[in-house]
Simulated assay, not measured.
Amino acid sequence: MRHSEFHRAHRIGWLRAAVLGANDGIVSTASLVIGVAAAHADIQAILVSGTAGLVAGAMSMAAGEYVSVSSQVDTEQADLKREEQELTENHHQEVNELKVIYIARGLKPELAQQVAEQLMAHDALAAHARDELGLTEITTARPLQAALTSALTFSLGALLPLLMVMVFPYLPLAQANQMIINLTASDTMPLITLVGSISLLSLMLLGGLSALAGGASVLTAVARVIFWGILSMGITAGVGLLFGTVSG
């Protein structure tokens, strides 16, 4: 009977982009909303700022991921071309390179020589790409996938704090502060509390789910996103409060 094992390495590419996008969407948009609210802006201004942040952030994430991953692809392709040329010009030396690698991994010299020769006879470039350069199908960079995943997950993450702003005027806790609802805000602490609390809870959930999907420590992942989320929102709130006080 064939023994099958379950691994998560194939998820690295899209999982990284998805987690990064959603996390950035929540943190950056929530921080923007909280910062603008702390400056005593009204609901309309907060909503417009948050929406602009969503669009700009999603495009920035897509462009940034595409450019950075494309650069990685260019580097990988350049390494493969150089390796292909070396295989053509100095085949014997390339066999020795693999032999040394396999010896370092624990094979005896005679066996390492045999393995190197047989693998190169089968597919020399693939053998060197995998064992010398560390390039495999799992780790191959995919620019378009990374860009689309980041933009989509950023947008989904950013929608959360924006939804909190949109529903806030209809919530009981907003009734004690009609000035916010009437778009002439002077005290936006209830809105800041709502957006901050829901965003932190969402970050905890996201961190936990990403850890489970990747087989990592849930506690570590949750602690990490909570720390950076609180830090980002706290600093932005301070900046907004400072500018609100100065302009007032």
Rank of each mutant, 00 (worst) to 15 (best):
V73Y: 05
I46C: 05
G64D: 01
K99N: 09
I43F: 03
K99P: 05
G57H: 06
G50A: 04
V55D: 00
Q93T: 05
Q93Y: 05
E83T: 15
E76T: 11
E84A: 15
A45Y: 09
E94C: 11
N90V: 06
H92I: 07
S60E: 04
L98F: 11
T51Y: 01
L47W: 07
V69K: 02
Q44K: 13
A62G: 09
S60F: 06
T51E: 00
S71E: 06
G57N: 05
L80A: 11
A58F: 00
L87R: 06
G50M: 03
S71H: 04
H91R: 14
D79S: 14
L80K: 11
Q93R: 08
T51M: 10
L54T: 00
S68C: 06
T75L: 12
N96G: 09
M59E: 03
K81R: 14
R82G: 08
S70Q: 12
L87V: 13
T51P: 00
V73T: 14
E65V: 00
Q93V: 04
I46A: 06
V67A: 02
M61F: 00
R82Q: 14
R82I: 14
E89C: 04
E94Q: 15
E65A: 01
L47Y: 07
V95S: 03
D74G: 10
S68I: 03
A56C: 06
M61D: 00
Q93H: 08
M59H: 03
Q85T: 09
E83W: 09
T75K: 12
D42T: 09
G64R: 02
D74A: 13
K81P: 04
S49I: 06
A52Y: 03
Q72L: 12
E76V: 12
A45S: 15
V95D: 03
E84T: 08
H91S: 09
A62V: 05
K99T: 15
E89T: 13
Q77H: 12
Y66P: 01
G57W: 06
R82A: 15
A63K: 05
H92Y: 07
V95E: 10
T88A: 12
E84V: 02
H91F: 15
G50D: 02
E86W: 08
A62I: 03
Q93P: 01
E97P: 06
R82K: 15
R82H: 13
L87H: 06
D79K: 15
T75I: 11
V73F: 08
Q85S: 11
N90I: 04
L98A: 12
L98P: 09
Q77R: 14
E84C: 11
Q85C: 07
I43S: 07
I46Q: 07
E89D: 13
I46R: 05
E65H: 00
A52Q: 05
E94P: 04
G50S: 05
S49D: 02
D79E: 15
A56I: 02
V48C: 03
L54W: 00
E94G: 06
Q44D: 11
N90M: 04
I46L: 04
V67L: 11
A78R: 15
A52C: 11
L47R: 09
V55Q: 01
V48F: 09
I43N: 03
Y66A: 08
E89I: 07
T51A: 13
E65L: 01
L87Q: 08
N90Y: 04
T75A: 13
A62R: 04
A78D: 14
N96E: 14
S60Y: 07
A52L: 11
